[in-house]
Amino acid sequence: DVEEQIRRLEEVLKKNQPVTWNGTTYTDPNEIKKVIEELRKSM
């Protein structure tokens, strides 16, 4: 579920933690925001 994935990513973003997405680890909050944007567009 895309909305659930977005929620999880936003939680990680709030905690300022790195997130691994599709085999890539993002540590930059701006990169994580881009991933969230892409997910929103795909909905």
Results as ranks from 00 to 15, higher is better:
residue 12 V to N: 15
residue 37 E to Y: 04
residue 18 P to D: 07
residue 38 E to Y: 10
residue 10 E to L: 09
residue 43 M to Q: 14
residue 2 V to G: 04
residue 11 E to N: 08
residue 23 G to C: 03
residue 19 V to W: 12
residue 6 I to K: 01
residue 8 R to H: 13
residue 28 D to L: 03
residue 39 L to P: 00
residue 12 V to F: 15
residue 6 I to P: 00
residue 36 I to S: 00
residue 20 T to W: 12
residue 41 K to M: 12
residue 19 V to R: 00
residue 5 Q to F: 11
residue 13 L to W: 06
residue 3 E to W: 14
residue 19 V to L: 12
residue 10 E to D: 03
residue 22 N to M: 14
residue 21 W to I: 15
residue 25 T to W: 11
residue 23 G to Y: 02
residue 26 Y to K: 01
residue 30 N to V: 13
residue 31 E to R: 02
residue 26 Y to V: 05
residue 11 E to H: 05
residue 10 E to H: 04
residue 41 K to W: 09
residue 40 R to K: 13
residue 20 T to P: 03
residue 17 Q to E: 15
residue 30 N to I: 13
residue 18 P to M: 11
residue 32 I to Q: 00
residue 31 E to S: 07
residue 30 N to P: 03
residue 12 V to S: 15
residue 30 N to D: 14
residue 8 R to N: 12
residue 15 K to D: 11
residue 27 T to E: 09
residue 20 T to C: 09
residue 37 E to T: 06
residue 30 N to L: 14
residue 40 R to P: 00
residue 3 E to F: 13
residue 38 E to F: 10
residue 9 L to G: 01
residue 17 Q to L: 15
residue 28 D to N: 08
residue 28 D to F: 03
residue 34 K to S: 09
residue 16 N to G: 15
residue 42 S to N: 10
residue 28 D to H: 05
residue 28 D to R: 02
residue 10 E to S: 04
residue 20 T to Y: 13
residue 6 I to L: 07
residue 33 K to M: 14
residue 9 L to I: 06
residue 34 K to W: 09
residue 13 L to D: 01
residue 2 V to C: 05
residue 13 L to S: 04
residue 32 I to S: 00
residue 2 V to E: 03
residue 32 I to E: 00
residue 27 T to Y: 13
residue 24 T to Y: 11
residue 38 E to G: 07
residue 7 R to I: 07
residue 42 S to A: 12
residue 4 E to R: 05
residue 40 R to V: 07
residue 35 V to E: 02
residue 14 K to A: 14
residue 40 R to G: 03
residue 7 R to E: 07
residue 2 V to H: 06
residue 22 N to I: 03
residue 42 S to L: 15
residue 10 E to N: 04
residue 35 V to P: 00
residue 20 T to D: 13
residue 17 Q to K: 09
residue 15 K to N: 15
residue 9 L to T: 00
residue 12 V to W: 11
residue 28 D to I: 03
residue 35 V to G: 00
residue 5 Q to N: 05
residue 27 T to L: 08
residue 23 G to Q: 03
residue 6 I to H: 00
residue 20 T to S: 11
residue 8 R to S: 08
residue 7 R to L: 12
residue 16 N to A: 09
residue 31 E to I: 07
residue 24 T to V: 15
residue 6 I to E: 01
residue 19 V to K: 01
residue 24 T to W: 07
residue 35 V to Y: 04
residue 8 R to D: 07
residue 1 D to N: 13
residue 19 V to C: 03
residue 15 K to M: 14
residue 3 E to D: 08
residue 12 V to M: 15
residue 35 V to S: 01
residue 26 Y to T: 03
residue 27 T to A: 07
residue 39 L to E: 01
residue 1 D to I: 12
residue 38 E to S: 09
residue 19 V to N: 02
residue 18 P to Y: 07
residue 18 P to S: 13
residue 17 Q to H: 12
residue 27 T to C: 03
residue 25 T to K: 05
residue 12 V to L: 15
residue 17 Q to G: 11
residue 13 L to M: 11
residue 32 I to F: 06
residue 39 L to V: 03
residue 10 E to K: 05
residue 38 E to V: 06
residue 3 E to G: 10
residue 22 N to V: 02
residue 38 E to H: 09
residue 17 Q to R: 07
residue 31 E to T: 06
residue 18 P to Q: 13
residue 33 K to C: 08
residue 15 K to I: 09
residue 24 T to H: 15
residue 9 L to D: 01
residue 43 M to A: 09
residue 34 K to D: 05
residue 10 E to Q: 05
residue 23 G to D: 07
residue 12 V to G: 15
residue 17 Q to P: 06
residue 32 I to C: 01
residue 10 E to R: 04
residue 10 E to F: 04
residue 11 E to L: 08
residue 20 T to R: 09
residue 32 I to K: 00
residue 13 L to I: 11
residue 1 D to Y: 12
residue 40 R to T: 06
residue 5 Q to V: 14
residue 39 L to W: 02
residue 35 V to K: 04
residue 16 N to K: 11
residue 40 R to N: 04
residue 20 T to G: 03
residue 7 R to C: 04
residue 21 W to V: 12
residue 38 E to T: 07
residue 36 I to F: 03
residue 13 L to H: 03
residue 4 E to N: 07
residue 4 E to W: 08
residue 41 K to T: 11
residue 20 T to H: 11
residue 2 V to I: 15
residue 5 Q to Y: 09
residue 21 W to P: 02
residue 41 K to L: 14
residue 7 R to T: 06
residue 11 E to T: 06
residue 43 M to K: 03
residue 14 K to E: 15
residue 24 T to P: 01
residue 11 E to K: 05
residue 25 T to G: 02
residue 8 R to F: 15
residue 40 R to M: 10
residue 8 R to E: 13
residue 17 Q to T: 10
residue 30 N to Y: 12
residue 9 L to Y: 03
residue 29 P to W: 06
residue 11 E to F: 04
residue 15 K to R: 11
residue 17 Q to V: 12
residue 13 L to C: 02
residue 6 I to V: 04
residue 10 E to V: 05
residue 27 T to D: 12
residue 24 T to Q: 14
residue 33 K to Q: 13
residue 23 G to K: 02
residue 18 P to C: 07
residue 31 E to V: 06
residue 12 V to T: 13
residue 6 I to Q: 00
residue 36 I to T: 01
residue 39 L to D: 00
residue 40 R to I: 13
residue 11 E to M: 08
residue 16 N to D: 08
residue 31 E to Y: 04
residue 38 E to A: 09
residue 43 M to P: 06
residue 34 K to R: 09
residue 15 K to Y: 13
residue 8 R to M: 15
residue 28 D to G: 04
residue 28 D to A: 04
residue 31 E to F: 07
residue 33 K to H: 07
residue 8 R to A: 13
residue 42 S to H: 14
residue 7 R to M: 09
residue 14 K to Q: 14
residue 14 K to L: 15
residue 12 V to E: 15
residue 41 K to R: 11
residue 11 E to P: 00
residue 5 Q to W: 13
residue 19 V to Y: 11
residue 39 L to S: 00
residue 7 R to Y: 06
residue 1 D to S: 13
residue 36 I to M: 04
residue 7 R to V: 05
residue 14 K to N: 12
residue 18 P to K: 09
residue 17 Q to Y: 10
residue 12 V to P: 02
residue 4 E to V: 04
residue 15 K to H: 14
residue 41 K to A: 15
residue 2 V to F: 11
residue 12 V to D: 13
residue 35 V to C: 05
residue 29 P to E: 07
residue 16 N to L: 08
residue 30 N to C: 13
residue 33 K to F: 10
residue 35 V to N: 01
residue 8 R to C: 06
residue 34 K to V: 08
residue 32 I to A: 04
residue 16 N to S: 09
residue 41 K to G: 12
residue 21 W to H: 10
residue 6 I to G: 00
residue 32 I to G: 01
residue 10 E to M: 09
residue 36 I to E: 00
residue 16 N to W: 14
residue 36 I to C: 01
residue 33 K to E: 10
residue 23 G to S: 04
residue 13 L to Y: 07
